[in-house]
Protein backbone atom coordinates (compact mmCIF):
# COMPACT_ATOMS: atom_id res chain seq x y z
CA UNK A 1 0.00 0.00 0.00
CA UNK A 2 2.65 2.43 1.04
CA UNK A 3 4.59 1.60 -2.09
CA UNK A 4 1.82 2.31 -4.48
CA UNK A 5 2.23 5.53 -6.43
CA UNK A 6 0.16 8.36 -5.05
CA UNK A 7 -2.35 10.12 -7.25
CA UNK A 8 -4.40 13.24 -6.55
CA UNK A 9 -7.39 14.77 -8.32
CA UNK A 10 -8.36 18.36 -7.80
CA UNK A 11 -10.54 20.94 -9.44
CA UNK A 12 -10.42 24.69 -9.69
CA UNK A 13 -13.20 26.61 -11.47
CA UNK A 14 -14.84 23.62 -13.06
CA UNK A 15 -18.28 22.46 -14.11
CA UNK A 16 -17.75 19.09 -12.49
CA UNK A 17 -17.83 17.34 -15.87
CA UNK A 18 -14.16 16.42 -15.71
CA UNK A 19 -14.81 14.75 -12.36
CA UNK A 20 -17.71 12.87 -13.90
CA UNK A 21 -15.36 11.71 -16.63
CA UNK A 22 -13.23 10.09 -13.93
CA UNK A 23 -16.32 8.35 -12.56
CA UNK A 24 -17.08 7.27 -16.14
CA UNK A 25 -14.06 5.04 -16.03
CA UNK A 26 -16.80 2.81 -14.53
CA UNK A 27 -15.34 -0.54 -13.62
CA UNK A 28 -12.02 0.76 -14.94
CA UNK A 29 -11.86 2.85 -11.83
CA UNK A 30 -11.28 -0.34 -9.89
CA UNK A 31 -8.11 -0.98 -11.91
CA UNK A 32 -6.93 2.52 -11.16
CA UNK A 33 -7.67 2.11 -7.48
CA UNK A 34 -5.82 -1.19 -7.48
CA UNK A 35 -2.74 0.32 -9.06
CA UNK A 36 -2.50 3.58 -7.17
CA UNK A 37 -3.17 5.15 -3.87
CA UNK A 38 -5.56 8.07 -4.34
CA UNK A 39 -4.49 10.48 -1.64
CA UNK A 40 -6.77 13.29 -2.53
CA UNK A 41 -10.06 13.44 -4.42
CA UNK A 42 -12.48 15.91 -2.89
CA UNK A 43 -15.52 14.95 -4.91
CA UNK A 44 -15.44 11.33 -3.83
CA UNK A 45 -13.14 10.92 -0.86
CA UNK A 46 -12.34 12.59 2.42
CA UNK A 47 -10.89 15.96 1.95
CA UNK A 48 -7.43 16.27 3.32
CA UNK A 49 -5.81 19.55 2.49
CA UNK A 50 -3.89 19.37 5.70
CA UNK A 51 -2.79 15.84 4.93
CA UNK A 52 -1.57 17.05 1.57
CA UNK A 53 0.33 19.82 3.28
CA UNK A 54 1.97 17.28 5.54
CA UNK A 55 3.17 15.10 2.67
CA UNK A 56 6.82 15.48 1.72
CA UNK A 57 7.42 17.58 -1.37
CA UNK A 58 7.13 15.65 -4.63
CA UNK A 59 5.68 12.62 -2.89
CA UNK A 60 2.56 12.54 -5.03
CA UNK A 61 3.41 10.91 -8.33
CA UNK A 62 0.82 12.76 -10.32
CA UNK A 63 -1.87 15.35 -9.68
CA UNK A 64 -4.69 15.80 -12.17
CA UNK A 65 -6.07 19.31 -11.90
CA UNK A 66 -9.18 20.35 -13.80
CA UNK A 67 -10.94 23.68 -14.10
CA UNK A 68 -9.66 27.14 -14.86
CA UNK A 69 -8.29 29.51 -12.27
CA UNK A 70 -10.28 32.50 -11.18
CA UNK A 71 -9.90 32.82 -7.41
CA UNK A 72 -6.77 33.31 -5.33
CA UNK A 73 -7.56 30.19 -3.31
CA UNK A 74 -7.59 28.10 -6.47
CA UNK A 75 -4.17 29.42 -7.27
CA UNK A 76 -2.97 28.52 -3.78
CA UNK A 77 -4.24 24.95 -4.06
CA UNK A 78 -2.61 24.60 -7.46
CA UNK A 79 0.68 25.79 -6.00
CA UNK A 80 0.42 23.40 -3.07
CA UNK A 81 -0.21 20.43 -5.36
CA UNK A 82 2.60 21.57 -7.63
CA UNK A 83 5.02 21.47 -4.72
CA UNK A 84 3.84 18.07 -3.54
CA UNK A 85 3.73 16.40 -6.95
CA UNK A 86 6.30 15.04 -9.34
CA UNK A 87 3.94 15.59 -12.24
CA UNK A 88 1.04 17.93 -12.67
CA UNK A 89 -1.42 17.28 -15.45
CA UNK A 90 -3.78 19.95 -16.64
CA UNK A 91 -6.93 17.87 -17.02
CA UNK A 92 -9.60 19.08 -19.43
CA UNK A 93 -10.09 22.14 -21.63
CA UNK A 94 -10.66 24.57 -18.76
CA UNK A 95 -7.35 23.78 -17.17
CA UNK A 96 -5.57 23.33 -20.49
CA UNK A 97 -6.82 26.43 -22.34
CA UNK A 98 -9.36 28.20 -20.15
CA UNK A 99 -12.38 26.33 -21.50
CA UNK A 100 -15.87 27.60 -22.20
CA UNK A 101 -15.98 29.69 -18.98
CA UNK A 102 -12.90 31.44 -20.34
CA UNK A 103 -15.21 33.26 -22.74
CA UNK A 104 -15.97 35.40 -19.68
CA UNK A 105 -12.68 37.15 -20.45
CA UNK A 106 -14.61 39.17 -22.99
CA UNK A 107 -16.17 40.79 -19.92
CA UNK A 108 -14.96 41.87 -16.51
CA UNK A 109 -16.23 41.82 -12.96
CA UNK A 110 -18.07 45.12 -13.20
CA UNK A 111 -19.99 44.20 -16.35
CA UNK A 112 -20.86 40.73 -15.04
CA UNK A 113 -22.17 42.18 -11.79
CA UNK A 114 -24.07 44.89 -13.58
CA UNK A 115 -26.04 42.35 -15.55
CA UNK A 116 -26.44 39.72 -12.88
CA UNK A 117 -27.46 41.90 -9.95
CA UNK A 118 -29.08 44.87 -11.65
CA UNK A 119 -29.99 44.65 -15.31
CA UNK A 120 -31.22 41.08 -15.82
CA UNK A 121 -34.97 41.18 -16.47
CA UNK A 122 -35.79 38.95 -13.50
CA UNK A 123 -33.95 41.06 -10.94
CA UNK A 124 -36.50 42.70 -8.65
CA UNK A 125 -37.01 46.35 -9.51
CA UNK A 126 -34.95 48.53 -7.22
CA UNK A 127 -32.59 45.75 -6.20
CA UNK A 128 -29.33 47.51 -5.36
CA UNK A 129 -27.40 44.87 -3.46
CA UNK A 130 -24.17 43.54 -4.88
CA UNK A 131 -22.08 40.94 -3.10
CA UNK A 132 -19.07 42.34 -1.27
CA UNK A 133 -15.97 40.72 0.11
CA UNK A 134 -16.62 41.79 3.71
CA UNK A 135 -20.15 42.29 4.90
CA UNK A 136 -21.39 43.39 8.31
CA UNK A 137 -24.52 41.51 9.27
CA UNK A 138 -26.27 42.04 12.63
CA UNK A 139 -24.51 39.00 14.08
CA UNK A 140 -20.98 39.71 12.86
CA UNK A 141 -18.96 39.84 9.66
CA UNK A 142 -19.17 37.54 6.66
CA UNK A 143 -16.48 37.14 4.04
CA UNK A 144 -16.64 36.24 0.37
CA UNK A 145 -13.72 35.44 -1.89
CA UNK A 146 -12.94 38.12 -4.44
CA UNK A 147 -14.31 37.77 -7.94
CA UNK A 148 -11.57 38.44 -10.46
CA UNK A 149 -11.76 40.03 -13.86
CA UNK A 150 -9.87 37.29 -15.59
CA UNK A 151 -10.05 33.55 -16.05
CA UNK A 152 -6.63 31.89 -16.36
CA UNK A 153 -5.35 28.56 -17.58
CA UNK A 154 -3.53 26.31 -15.13
CA UNK A 155 -0.16 26.88 -16.78
CA UNK A 156 -0.59 30.61 -16.35
CA UNK A 157 -0.32 30.10 -12.59
CA UNK A 158 1.89 27.02 -12.13
CA UNK A 159 4.30 24.92 -14.13
CA UNK A 160 2.43 22.11 -15.88
CA UNK A 161 4.07 18.86 -17.04
CA UNK A 162 1.41 17.41 -19.30
CA UNK A 163 -1.97 18.24 -20.72
CA UNK A 164 -4.99 16.00 -21.07
CA UNK A 165 -7.25 17.83 -23.48
CA UNK A 166 -10.99 17.69 -23.98
CA UNK A 167 -14.18 19.01 -22.51
CA UNK A 168 -14.09 16.64 -20.79
CA UNK A 169 -11.22 14.26 -21.67
CA UNK A 170 -12.41 10.78 -22.49
CA UNK A 171 -12.06 8.08 -19.81
CA UNK A 172 -9.90 6.13 -22.25
CA UNK A 173 -7.35 8.94 -22.54
CA UNK A 174 -7.32 9.27 -18.78
CA UNK A 175 -6.67 5.58 -18.32
CA UNK A 176 -3.92 5.71 -20.96
CA UNK A 177 -2.30 8.69 -19.26
CA UNK A 178 -2.30 6.99 -15.89
CA UNK A 179 -0.76 3.94 -17.53
CA UNK A 180 1.97 5.89 -19.26
CA UNK A 181 2.94 7.72 -16.10
CA UNK A 182 2.93 4.63 -13.93
CA UNK A 183 5.02 2.67 -16.38
CA UNK A 184 7.42 5.58 -16.38
CA UNK A 185 7.78 5.81 -20.16
CA UNK A 186 7.47 9.55 -20.04
CA UNK A 187 6.77 11.69 -23.05
CA UNK A 188 8.68 14.98 -23.30
CA UNK A 189 7.57 17.57 -20.80
CA UNK A 190 4.80 19.77 -22.10
CA UNK A 191 3.27 17.03 -24.24
CA UNK A 192 -0.42 16.93 -24.80
CA UNK A 193 -1.45 13.36 -24.04
CA UNK A 194 -3.81 12.73 -26.93
CA UNK A 195 -3.47 12.31 -30.68
CA UNK A 196 -0.70 14.08 -32.53
CA UNK A 197 -2.63 14.33 -35.76
CA UNK A 198 -5.75 16.25 -36.66
CA UNK A 199 -9.10 14.80 -35.72
CA UNK A 200 -10.04 14.11 -39.35
CA UNK A 201 -7.63 11.18 -39.36
CA UNK A 202 -9.81 9.31 -36.90
CA UNK A 203 -13.15 10.54 -38.20
CA UNK A 204 -15.44 7.95 -39.81
CA UNK A 205 -16.37 10.52 -42.47
CA UNK A 206 -12.80 11.25 -43.51
CA UNK A 207 -13.06 9.17 -46.66
CA UNK A 208 -15.78 11.40 -47.98
CA UNK A 209 -13.66 14.48 -47.43
CA UNK A 210 -12.32 15.76 -50.75
CA UNK A 211 -8.56 15.97 -51.16
CA UNK A 212 -8.74 19.66 -51.92
CA UNK A 213 -11.64 21.25 -50.19
CA UNK A 214 -13.04 24.47 -51.58
CA UNK A 215 -16.23 25.96 -50.24
CA UNK A 216 -18.64 28.27 -52.01
CA UNK A 217 -20.83 28.43 -49.00
CA UNK A 218 -20.56 28.25 -45.25
CA UNK A 219 -23.69 27.02 -43.58
CA UNK A 220 -25.04 27.20 -40.10
CA UNK A 221 -25.94 23.84 -38.70
CA UNK A 222 -29.46 24.62 -37.52
CA UNK A 223 -30.37 25.73 -41.05
CA UNK A 224 -28.84 22.72 -42.76
CA UNK A 225 -30.16 19.24 -43.42
CA UNK A 226 -27.11 17.24 -42.50
CA UNK A 227 -26.08 14.17 -44.47
CA UNK A 228 -24.63 11.90 -41.79
CA UNK A 229 -22.63 9.94 -44.37
CA UNK A 230 -20.65 12.83 -45.75
CA UNK A 231 -17.82 14.92 -44.31
CA UNK A 232 -19.54 17.79 -42.52
CA UNK A 233 -17.04 20.35 -43.69
CA UNK A 234 -17.61 19.30 -47.27
CA UNK A 235 -21.28 20.10 -46.63
CA UNK A 236 -20.28 23.62 -45.67
CA UNK A 237 -20.56 23.19 -41.92
CA UNK A 238 -17.63 24.62 -40.00
CA UNK A 239 -16.28 21.39 -38.59
CA UNK A 240 -13.00 22.14 -36.84
CA UNK A 241 -11.74 18.59 -37.33
CA UNK A 242 -8.88 19.60 -39.66
CA UNK A 243 -7.41 21.99 -37.08
CA UNK A 244 -8.26 20.08 -33.91
CA UNK A 245 -6.11 17.53 -32.15
CA UNK A 246 -7.35 13.98 -32.46
CA UNK A 247 -8.00 11.71 -29.52
CA UNK A 248 -11.75 11.80 -28.90
CA UNK A 249 -12.51 9.51 -31.87
CA UNK A 250 -14.79 12.16 -33.34
CA UNK A 251 -17.50 12.01 -30.73
CA UNK A 252 -19.44 15.05 -31.92
CA UNK A 253 -19.24 14.04 -35.56
CA UNK A 254 -20.66 10.65 -34.63
CA UNK A 255 -23.51 12.62 -33.12
CA UNK A 256 -23.98 14.25 -36.57
CA UNK A 257 -22.66 17.57 -35.32
CA UNK A 258 -19.47 19.41 -36.26
CA UNK A 259 -16.41 19.39 -34.04
CA UNK A 260 -16.09 22.59 -32.05
CA UNK A 261 -12.46 22.08 -31.13
CA UNK A 262 -12.47 21.09 -27.46
CA UNK A 263 -9.26 19.10 -27.81
CA UNK A 264 -7.41 22.24 -28.82
CA UNK A 265 -5.10 22.71 -31.78
CA UNK A 266 -2.36 20.34 -32.90
CA UNK A 267 1.20 20.58 -31.59
CA UNK A 268 2.69 23.28 -33.76
CA UNK A 269 -0.16 25.74 -33.22
CA UNK A 270 -0.19 28.10 -30.33
CA UNK A 271 -3.25 30.19 -30.97
CA UNK A 272 -6.32 28.15 -31.76
CA UNK A 273 -8.42 31.09 -32.93
CA UNK A 274 -5.79 32.35 -35.34
CA UNK A 275 -5.38 28.87 -36.73
CA UNK A 276 -9.09 28.49 -37.25
CA UNK A 277 -9.18 31.74 -39.16
CA UNK A 278 -6.27 30.73 -41.35
CA UNK A 279 -7.94 27.45 -42.11
CA UNK A 280 -11.35 28.76 -43.01
CA UNK A 281 -9.77 31.46 -45.14
CA UNK A 282 -7.84 28.86 -47.07
CA UNK A 283 -10.87 26.82 -48.08
CA UNK A 284 -13.18 29.63 -49.09
CA UNK A 285 -13.39 29.61 -52.85
CA UNK A 286 -13.84 33.32 -53.44
CA UNK A 287 -11.53 36.15 -54.44
CA UNK A 288 -13.85 39.11 -54.74
CA UNK A 289 -14.38 41.19 -51.67
CA UNK A 290 -18.17 41.17 -51.96
CA UNK A 291 -18.29 37.36 -52.31
CA UNK A 292 -15.97 36.91 -49.37
CA UNK A 293 -18.10 39.13 -47.21
CA UNK A 294 -21.24 37.32 -48.21
CA UNK A 295 -19.74 33.95 -47.33
CA UNK A 296 -18.33 35.22 -44.06
CA UNK A 297 -21.73 36.50 -43.00
CA UNK A 298 -22.30 32.90 -41.97
CA UNK A 299 -19.37 33.09 -39.58
CA UNK A 300 -20.95 35.76 -37.41
CA UNK A 301 -19.09 34.89 -34.21
CA UNK A 302 -15.43 34.11 -34.91
CA UNK A 303 -14.45 34.39 -31.23
CA UNK A 304 -17.12 31.94 -30.09
CA UNK A 305 -16.40 29.67 -33.05
CA UNK A 306 -12.62 29.51 -32.99
CA UNK A 307 -11.85 30.33 -29.33
CA UNK A 308 -14.76 28.42 -27.84
CA UNK A 309 -12.42 26.65 -25.45
CA UNK A 310 -9.27 28.70 -25.49
CA UNK A 311 -9.78 32.42 -25.10
CA UNK A 312 -7.59 32.71 -21.97
CA UNK A 313 -4.84 31.02 -23.98
CA UNK A 314 -5.14 33.41 -26.94
CA UNK A 315 -2.25 35.67 -27.88
CA UNK A 316 -4.40 38.58 -26.88
CA UNK A 317 -7.15 39.20 -24.36
CA UNK A 318 -5.28 40.08 -21.19
CA UNK A 319 -2.86 37.28 -21.81
CA UNK A 320 0.23 39.21 -22.79
CA UNK A 321 2.23 37.57 -20.06
CA UNK A 322 1.23 33.97 -20.53
CA UNK A 323 3.77 31.29 -19.81
CA UNK A 324 5.13 29.38 -22.78
CA UNK A 325 2.99 26.49 -23.84
CA UNK A 326 3.59 23.12 -25.37
Amino acid sequence: MADKPKVAFYWCASCGGCEEAVVDLAEGILDVIAAVDIVFWPVALDFKVRDVKELPDESITVSFINGAVRLSEQEEMARLLRRKSKFVIAFGSCSHMGGVPGLANLWDRASIFAWYYHDAPSVAPGNVREPREHVRVPEGTLELPAFWDTVKTLDQVIDVDYYLPGCPPTPKLLADAVGVLLRGDLPPKGSVLAGTRALCHECPLNESKPEKLLLKDIRRVHLTKVDPEKCLLAQGLLCLGPVTRGGCEALCVKGNMPCTGCFGPTDEVRDQGAKGIAYVSSILDFDEEADIERALANVPDPVGTFYRYSLPRAYLMRTRKVMPHA
Binding site: L106, G273, A274, I277, A278, V280, S281, S282, L284, F286, D287, E289, I292, E293, L296, V299, D301, P302, V303, F306, L316, M317
Partner: peptide, 27 residues
Protein backbone atom coordinates in the same frame (compact mmCIF):
# COMPACT_ATOMS: atom_id res chain seq x y z
CA UNK B 1 -5.34 41.82 -57.12
CA UNK B 2 -4.24 39.68 -60.09
CA UNK B 3 -0.59 40.78 -59.55
CA UNK B 4 0.42 38.32 -56.84
CA UNK B 5 3.62 36.50 -57.70
CA UNK B 6 2.03 33.28 -56.54
CA UNK B 7 -1.21 34.22 -58.27
CA UNK B 8 -3.64 33.83 -55.36
CA UNK B 9 -1.66 34.64 -52.19
CA UNK B 10 -3.14 38.09 -51.90
CA UNK B 11 -6.69 36.76 -52.17
CA UNK B 12 -5.96 34.44 -49.32
CA UNK B 13 -4.59 37.39 -47.40
CA UNK B 14 -7.79 39.30 -48.11
CA UNK B 15 -9.98 36.49 -46.78
CA UNK B 16 -7.89 36.15 -43.66
CA UNK B 17 -7.91 39.87 -43.16
CA UNK B 18 -11.68 40.05 -43.37
CA UNK B 19 -12.23 37.25 -40.88
CA UNK B 20 -9.49 38.34 -38.52
CA UNK B 21 -10.75 41.87 -38.56
CA UNK B 22 -14.18 40.65 -37.60
CA UNK B 23 -12.75 38.72 -34.71
CA UNK B 24 -10.60 41.60 -33.53
CA UNK B 25 -13.60 43.86 -33.44
CA UNK B 26 -15.35 41.33 -31.17
CA UNK B 27 -12.35 41.53 -28.89
Amino acid sequence: PRDCHYSVGNYKALRRYKLLKKMLSQM
